[in-house]
Design a protein around this nucleic acid. Structure first.
Lengths: 339, 339
DNA sequence: CTGAAAGCGCTTACAG
DNA sequence: CTGAAAGCGCTTACAG
């Protein structure tokens, strides 16, 4: 690699101290510096194509202007879209993003946090995996700024930004009932994560509120170790019941993807035999013969807000903020029209 | 933020110099150091929960163990999947990845490269946008290690990893002909990027080789400013011809997504009236009533190879390597069976 | 208005 | 076998 230009090089060229060069290029002490000298420094910096060495600056200031982003898997569309929104928002405020995928490997989250801390990121944005509360408690104790998104732990004293999953689910089921469906099932992950439980709870509450008896066996939970197979089984079980459901709510895009594929293969007619609603927006929904009605998460707002809150808490150590943003139901042909 | 433990803290605790602590923790000069002292240093480091300050190390060694990844848009599935593969491969070799989306904003690529250079990334992996050769020439001149992926510029003296787009396209068209299709169209981007031209060229070559006259108006190129509309128009134009095509090759997943949506709306029957093949694997292909035949890119290999080549050239300044990896055609119901 | 100096936390050539 | 010292390229409190 070619040698880079340093402050000292500019100082030597102009005939001043490197301290002065630093002041000028950082716009410190403006007004108290000789205009002519200042201009000459700026010109020389440009001429020599000077760029601050962020590493050296960081070492001195203890600030890297870097955010660590930890998602479940950067290759899934939800994470990737969030990454993009966070990237843009961070760039506006002069932050760069490093990312990592925590997956389902239990040590991966820990390892990522450690890596990011060694690199002295200024803060973290995390979609935490199950059973990682202890890691987050650690971050709180070390006073490292971080905000959770999508998923959250009520027990941890930190900021987060999530959708109001309870209400989104509640509204979706209310809509199904309004369309005349009476036996509504749900397929969710088997998980202790609060935002997923909120989805099932919203579903149950809607049935209760509208005086529909929730049949317990219409709630299916699939283990994450082999989603395609577990989803197929769940649907087979539901449809083999003496009174099979006339509508299903899928608690995630991933579940729905496998669910719809299977329903198509089984030649179950949507929406006449079975109505479908899924969480999450996906390009795939449009190619199904009955484009899916889905719950759209406010990704843009979630990402921007999470980034904004994080940077605020990095820069002025501000108070904890928690958001449950409203989702919206996009109604299409996988559900009949309301009666 | 809580004060972190430094080498000096350990040195003080053990009663040795921080130089010695550095040697021990980095496994330098092993054998020439008193075993007992070495063990005590290691124990103390663990006890105090010491972690290297990568910033300080980087400043000294001029090495950040960071790779900058520049993609068109991290939120698109192709980029996101590559990001994940690169992340994993880089982590194995102890590198962290920072990413940025270059988009279609002409200055964005330049800005990203500058940001990454200020942060002294050790090297870059880039899917370059159109007309950015000048930036890459700059990198070559500055002797900054980088490798291109997916897209490449033959004129630039650098390593790259791409699919063999020419052959993939050639094979896809050959397959269509084997199935009995005679009037084959292609919808590609309007672009000067070599890898996209390769796709059209492979298509033309296959027709030529198999003595099918390529009707010039069966080649459609869509501007990137409004893909959905341009793709619709392209398909309308093709289907309005006196002799409309009986098969279409889509040169990207994005084009196909809008294309298939439109074809579905127009009630054109696939594959009986019109066969379809698309580049790229997408979840959406499975939900269409005639699951798409597609050209699968060897993403895993591409990402791993690009990362491996980059790290090699960072660490031993190795020679330029160029790969055109074979794609594979996954045949399904959007094309009839071969005759 | 400007500069000398210290120091961020490491690594490493050199001396003993 | 071990340590003193220099230095990476910045920033900033202090002195004049």
């Amino acid at each position: 690699m070619v040698k880079r230009v340093s402050l000292k090089d500019i100082a030597r060229e102009v005939g001043v101290s490197s301290a002065l060069v630093s002041y000028v290029l950082n716009d410190k002490k403006t007004g108290r510096i000789n205009k002519v000298v200042a201009q000459k420094i700026k010109d020389t910096a440009k001429l020599l194509n000077y760029h601050t060495n962020q590493i050296a600056r960081s070492l001195k200031t203890n600030k890297t202007n870097t955010i660590g982003l930890i998602v479940a898997d950067i290759s899934n569309p939800f994470s990737a879209t969030m990454a993009r929104i966070i990237e843009d928002e961070a760039a506006k405020k002069n932050y760069t993003v490093i990312f990592g995928s925590s997956d389902e490997n239990p040590f991966q989250s820990e390892k990522l946090i450690e890596t990011f801390m060694n690199r002295y990121v200024d803060g973290l944005i995390i979609a935490p995996r199950e059973n990682t509360e202890y890691l987050l408690h650690d971050l709180v104790k070390q006073e490292i700024p971080f905000v959770l998104f999508d998923r959250y732990f009520p027990s941890i004293n930190t900021s987060y930004v999530a959708m109001d999953n309870f209400k989104a689910s509640f509204d979706a089921v209310k809509y199904l009932i309004k369309c005349g469906y009476k036996k509504i099932g749900i397929v969710n992950y088997q998980s202790t994560l609060q935002h997923l439980n909120d989805r099932t709870n919203g579903y149950l509450k809607a049935l209760e509120t509208l005086h529909i008896l929730p049949a317990n066996n219409l709630v299916k939970e699939v283990a994450i170790d082999n989603i395609p197979v577990h989803v197929e089984n769940a649907i087979n079980e539901l449809m083999a019941m003496s009174e099979p459901p006339d509508a299903i709510l899928f608690a995630s895009g991933e579940i729905a993807l496998h669910g719809v594929k299977h329903i198509k293969q089984q030649n179950i007619k949507v929406p006449s035999e079975l109505a479908l609603i899924s969480f999450d927006e996906m390009a795939a929904w449009d190619l199904f013969y009955a484009p899916l009605t889905y719950i759209k998460q406010p990704l843009q707002k979630m990402g921007q807000l999470a980034t904004k809150i994080l940077i605020e808490s990095i820069e002025d150590n501000s108070r904890i903020q928690r958001y449950h943003l409203p989702g919206s139901l996009v109604t299409r042909q996988s559900t009949k029209l309301p009666l």
